[in-house]
Simulated assay, not measured.
Amino acid sequence: MREVWLRGPESVDELAGAVAAALDGGEAVLPLDGSDPKAAGLLAAMRPDEPVEPGTAVIIATSGSTGEPKGVLLSAGALRASAEATHRRLGGPGRWLLATPANYIGGLQVLVRSMLAGQPFAVLPPGPFRAERFAEAARPVLAGDGPRYTAMVPTQLTRLLDAGGPGLDAAKAFDAIILGAAATTPALRARAAEAGVRIVPSYGMSETASGCVYDGVPLDGVDVRIAGDGRILIAGPVLTHGYRLRPDLTADAFDGRWFRTGDRGQLRDGRLEVLGRLDDVINTGGVKVSAAAVERLITALPGVRETCVVGLPDAEWGQVVAAAVVAEGAAPSVDELRAAVRASAGAAAVPKRVEFVTTLPLRGPGKIDRTAVAQQIFPPVG
């Protein structure tokens, strides 16, 4: 396999060349973040001296939600199928701005889409996300003809909406902004619509070669169904063909042609609604509480930007519900927050511990790190 260490815009060009070669049958590519202290461990877990599984064009190294390193194997066919279906959904091939790290699947797919469109891509330089830096990076894309696209995480869009000015103007000029890696809240969707920013919330993962459901509707060729336990199952040409040197994980992940995600969902009139992780259920006093459901209730309150709900060990209850809340403007009081949850979800779902914070710890491109929330925001009491 060919390792590409991402350390700046020049290394993104190197990665793009390596991926182009891999799509044409060349050596498999393993992109890694050169600034991440965990990257060396991810590389070791990929065992680069071992032969690469046949049919692999790209390996996405990830620790996922469990913290266990995994290498997601993606074929040229899966990458192409995802990129081509995305262009059909958005309105045709266009120019792209890479605004998320290219070692993650969302960023890497921007490179693939650009290659298939035959268009150059622009790169948001690494470093803290700032509205003015986004506006500057977007300028060459927005100056070109044809559709203009980018992909980002909800946190980035929130910052653009907060900042206003040139960054928001640039966002409004894109024909579509794909939002992925984390859920798009109703409040964020409403803010984007009011500001005139055209967003496309997406659902997907490394195993589906990036987003495979756009605004609740599967991409062409992608099938979605819900298992008896509420698990989201996905089939189609965008799927991984397994995990690097882990036939056990590969076997567990597939039920025939269906990929077994770790998420719960429901289908309404053919549209997918993601309800949260299967493992986000909190068992408190013998009552099962969905962390995602409590998060949706709290986030819907005026003055709440985002929240993370976790279960904390408790000697009496087994687990208790805890909520870390990022507020904006006039935030609700703890009593108001608890009353709203109690009225909609019952007493068991009411957070026994509530902390207001300025930010939530993240892992990867915009995903809330639930383990870090539990350990850093809610240290043991007593």
Rank of each mutant, 00 (worst) to 15 (best):
I59Y: 02
V58L: 13
L157W: 00
T86G: 04
A251W: 00
A291P: 02
A187N: 04
M115K: 02
T208W: 09
T250K: 13
V341R: 06
W258K: 07
A209C: 11
G106F: 01
G107H: 01
G270F: 04
L188A: 15
T358D: 15
Y214F: 15
A330C: 00
L98K: 01
D335G: 08
L301Y: 10
A339V: 08
Y214S: 00
G364A: 00
P361Q: 10
A135E: 09
L360E: 08
W96P: 02
E336N: 06
D335C: 02
A117D: 09
S114D: 15
P54E: 13
G204F: 08
D279L: 06
R47Q: 14
R246Q: 12
L160V: 06
R268K: 07
M46C: 11
R305W: 12
V294Y: 12
A183S: 15
V217P: 12
C212K: 11
A195C: 07
P247L: 10
F121Q: 01
Y104W: 09
K70N: 02
D33Q: 10
A187V: 06
G256W: 01
G17Y: 08
Y203I: 01
P101N: 06
P9C: 06
I199A: 07
A251L: 09
V141R: 04
A347S: 04
A347G: 00
I177D: 13
V294A: 10
K172V: 03
P147L: 15
A137P: 00
T208K: 11
R148P: 06
V321K: 11
L297V: 13
L160K: 10
R133K: 07
T284Y: 08
R80S: 04
A340L: 03
E295F: 15
V12G: 10
G196R: 08
F259N: 09
G17D: 05
D13F: 08
A330T: 13
A209D: 07
S114V: 00
L90N: 09
S75G: 10
A372C: 00
G77C: 05
R338N: 02
E14Q: 13
P332M: 02
